[in-house]
Design a protein around this nucleic acid. Structure first.
Length: 575
RNA sequence: GCACCGAUGGUCUAGUGGUAUGACUUUGGCCUUCCAAGCCAAUAGCCCGGGUUCAAUUCCCGGUCGGUGCACCA
C-alpha cells in the first residue's frame, strides 16, 4: 500500500468522509464532496471554531454572497494582483510567467509592466522550457478568480470570491454601527471561497473550491494591546521567527508575553491569535508535535502587512502545510475600499477629555470681494481662509500670482472650538483558517494502524469533540431481549443530543472495528449481565478498555465523557 | 498546461481480441456469552468518447481522474 495519505484517503472514501466530486460524470480536479461523516466532521470543526471566535471573542458571524461585483475586487487588488501575466510559447505550447522570464534577463520589477510592454521584452528571448526563441507571443492575464456575469444581458461582471474577507470589509460601516461605533470590534465569516488554480494537485490540500473561516478584527492603530491578553500571556509555544529561519536555527519556545516584549511578534493582537489558534488546533485534534508557527519572511509577506504568521501542520505526504494565516494587515483593506467606493471607512473615536483649541479664522467679506474680483471672488475667498494674514493684510497665491488683500476685505475672528475626538481608520488583524486542510490534517494525525493479535486494527483517534458518530450501542446477541434493551438505550442516548449508531450485525468484534474506523469514541454493549442487574459495558476506543455502569447512567456519562469533564477511568467500575 | 506512468465489484487485486479471478467488505440466514472466528447464500466490476475488428475491458487515438517531474500555487 501507499503512504499515509493513500491510507487515510482510502478510508475516507470507503467510510463516507471525502469523495471525488460528481464522480458519475467524471470527477473534476480541485473539487471534492464531503460524504455523511465528512460533512459532520467538518461542521464540528467549524462549530468549535465558532465557539472560539463568536462565543469567546464576541465577534459575530455574517454571511455575504459568494459572488461579488467587479468593483469589490478591483478595489481589493484581486483583479490586478491575483492575476499572473502569462504567455504561451509558440514552439512548445508551455505556459510560463512572462515577468519571470523578463526578470531573469535583467528587467527589474517586470511584474509592474503592462502586458504589451512585457511582450516586447520577452519576444526574442529564449523560452525557458524548450530553448526556442519566443516570437509573436502575447502576454495575457491569467486570473485565479472565477469570473461570471450577473443578470441577463450580462453587462455586469462578477467574481466568485477568492476569500471571505472582502464581505466583511464591504460591510464595515454597517458593522461599526452594529457595534455602536466602538473599537475594537470584529466579525467572522465561515464559507466557501474559489480560486481557479492552474494545476490543483495534492488532493484536499489545494482545492478550487474550499472553506475558509476568517475573522477580521478592527482595532485602533495606536492601541494594539488586546484587552484580554492575560489569557494567553503565559501561553508558551514554539515560534519560528524570521531571524531564526534566516540563521537556520530552530523555533524558540516563548510565552506570548515574552514574544511581544522582545519584538518577535509585532503586537499583542497578533500574539493573542497565534496562541488562540494553537489552542483551537489542539482542541480539534492536531498533534502538537506536528504544529509550528512560522513568521513570513520579508520576501513572502504582503507589502502592506505589518506582521504575518502561519500555523503549519506537518503531513506525512505534503510536509509542512500552511493551514492558518494570522496577519496584521494595517489599514490596507479599508483604505482600498474607501478609495474604491468613496465612502468613509472610519470610526469616530472621542477623546477622553474634550480638547479646546483656540483658532483664528479668516472670514472673507463677500460683499466687498464680489464686486472687486468678480468671477474670481470665490477662489480668492477660499484662498483667504487658508492664509495667514499679517497686521496690514493678507497675501494669497492665485493662479501662480501673488495677490495682496487689504484687511477691510475680511474679518479675523478668534474662537475657541471643542474637538471631541477624531475619525480613525482602524487596522485589521486577520486570522484566516483553511478548514479543508485542517480537516485533512486531523484525519491524518488521528489515523493509526495498530497490531492487535496479529490483525491490523485501523483506528481514527478523533477527539470526541469532533467525532462524527459519538457513540454506538450493540446487543451482544441479537436475541433473548438484549436487542430490545439496546434499542431502548439507543433512543435514550439520542434524546440527549448525542449521535449514536445501533448495530446488531455480525460478530461483536467486527462491530467494534467498524466504529474504530470512523472514530466513534465510545461503544456500549448490552450483555447477559444486563438482564440480571441493568448494567452495561462501556468501551473506550483508544484503550479498548471497558467499564461497567448502570444503564440509566449511560446518557449522562456519555455527555460528560464527550465534553471532557469525566475521565474514562471514572466512568464506571473496572471489569 | 507539458512529459512520463497508471486506471478491473465498495476496497485490494488476477487475467484476457470472444463479458472476467481471488480475497476482504456489504446484505440475508445458521451458529456464536465481548474485539474483523466458522458455515450457507446473495449483491456488486473492466474510467469516458471515438477508431480498427465479425467481435475491444484488452490494440490505436483523444479526453477525464490519480501519481511523479517541470511550470504555477492569494
Amino acid at each position: 500500500m501507499g503512504d499515509i495519505y493513500d491510507n487515510v484517503m482510502e478510508l475516507a472514501r470507503r467510510r463516507g468522509f471525502v469523495w471525488p466530486s460528481s464522480e458519475c460524470y467524471g470527477a473534476v480536479a480541485g473539487f471534492i464532496d464531503y460524504g455523511p461523516l465528512g460533512a459532520m466532521l467538518k461542521r464540528k470543526i467549524e462549530n468549535i471554531w465558532r465557539d472560539f471566535y463568536i462565543i469567546r471573542e464576541g465577534y459575530y458571524e455574517i454571511e455575504a454572497p459568494t459572488i461579488g461585483v467587479e468593483s469589490i475586487y478591483v478595489a481589493s487588488g484581486h483583479v490586478k494582483g491575483f492575476a499572473d501575466k502569462m504567455y504561451q510559447c509558440p514552439s512548445c505550447k508551455e505556459y510560463s510567467r512572462a515577468d519571470h522570464i523578463a526578470e531573469e534577463h535583467g528587467t527589474a520589477n517586470a511584474d509592474t509592466l503592462s502586458p504589451e510592454a512585457l511582450a516586447d521584452i520577452i519576444n526574442g528571448l529564449p523560452c525557458p522550457s524548450c530553448g526556442e526563441k519566443i516570437e509573436n507571443a502575447a502576454v495575457f492575464y491569467f486570473n485565479l478568480m472565477f469570473q461570471t456575469t450577473i443578470g441577463p444581458g450580462s453587462q455586469r461582471k462578477g467574481y466568485l470570491r477568492p476569500e471571505t474577507a472582502q464581505g466583511i470589509f464591504t460591510d464595515f460601516n454597517r458593522l461599526a454601527r452594529f457595534y455602536r461605533d466602538k473599537l475594537p470590534f470584529g466579525a467572522v465569516q465561515v464559507g466557501k471561497s474559489y480560486r481557479n488554480e492552474i494545476s490543483p494537485r495534492q488532493g484536499m490540500i489545494r482545492l478550487r473550491e474550499f472553506t475558509q473561516a476568517e475573522a477580521e478584527i478592527f482595532i485602533h492603530p495606536d492601541h494594539k494591546e488586546h484587552p484580554d491578553f492575560s489569557r494567553y500571556a503565559d501561553y508558551s509555544i514554539p515560534l519560528w521567527g524570521q531571524t531564526q529561519q534566516m540563521q537556520d536555527i530552530k523555533p524558540i519556545t516563548v510565552s506570548m508575553r515574552e514574544a511581544v516584549d522582545s519584538g518577535l511578534v509585532a503586537n499583542e493582537y497578533v500574539a493573542y491569535y497565534i496562541a488562540l489558534t494553537h489552542e483551537f488546533l489542539m482542541k480539534v485534534g492536531i498533534n502538537g508535535d506536528k504544529l509550528r508557527f512560522r513568521q513570513h519572511l520579508p520576501t513572502e509577506c504582503a507589502h502592506y502587512a505589518l506582521d504575518c504568521w502561519d500555523a503549519e501542520i506537518f503531513s506525512g505526504r505534503f510536509g509542512w502545510v500552511e493551514t492558518v494565516g494570522i496577519a496584521d494587515r494595517t489599514d490596507y483593506d479599508l483604505k482600498a475600499h474607501a478609495k474604491g467606493s468613496g465612502d468613509n471607512f472610519t470610526v469616530f473615536i472621542p477623546y477622553e477629555n474634550v480638547r479646546r483649541e483656540n483658532r483664528r479664522i479668516v472670514v472673507p467679506n463677500m460683499g466687498a470681494l464680489g464686486p472687486q474680483y468678480r468671477e474670481k471672488a470665490k477662489a480668492v475667498a477660499d484662498a483667504l481662509k487658508y492664509s495667514a494674514p499679517g497686521p496690514d493684510g493678507a497675501t494669497i497665491t492665485l493662479d501662480g500670482k501673488e495677490i495682496f488683500i487689504p484687511p477691510e476685505l475680511y474679518q479675523i475672528r478668534e474662537e475657541t472650538i471643542e474637538v471631541r475626538g477624531e475619525e480613525v481608520m482602524p487596522h485589521v488583524v486577520e486570522p484566516s483558517y483553511g478548514i479543508d486542510r485542517i480537516l485533512y490534517c486531523t484525519l491524518e494525525h488521528s489515523y493509526e494502524e495498530e497490531d492487535v493479535d496479529g490483525e491490523i486494527r485501523k483506528v481514527l483517534h478523533l477527539n470526541p469533540a469532533v467525532a462524527p458518530v459519538q457513540a454506538a450501542v450493540f446487543p451482544l446477541m441479537n436475541k433473548d431481549g438484549l436487542d430490545t434493551i439496546a434499542r431502548t438505550l439507543s433512543i435514550d442516548i439520542q434524546k440527549h443530543g448525542i449521535l449514536s449508531q445501533y448495530d446488531d450485525n455480525g460478530a461483536i468484534g467486527r462491530r467494534y472495528r467498524r466504529q474504530d474506523e470512523i472514530g466513534t469514541p465510545y461503544t456500549i454493549t448490552i450483555d447477559y449481565d444486563s438482564l440480571e442487574d441493568n448494567t452495561v459495558t462501556l468501551r473506550d476506543r483508544d484503550s479498548m478498555q471497558q467499564v461497567r455502569l448502570p444503564v440509566t447512567l449511560v446518557p449522562e456519562t456519555l455527555t460528560r465523557l464527550i465534553h471532557g469533564t469525566l475521565p474514562f477511568s471514572e466512568a464506571g467500575s473496572k471489569i
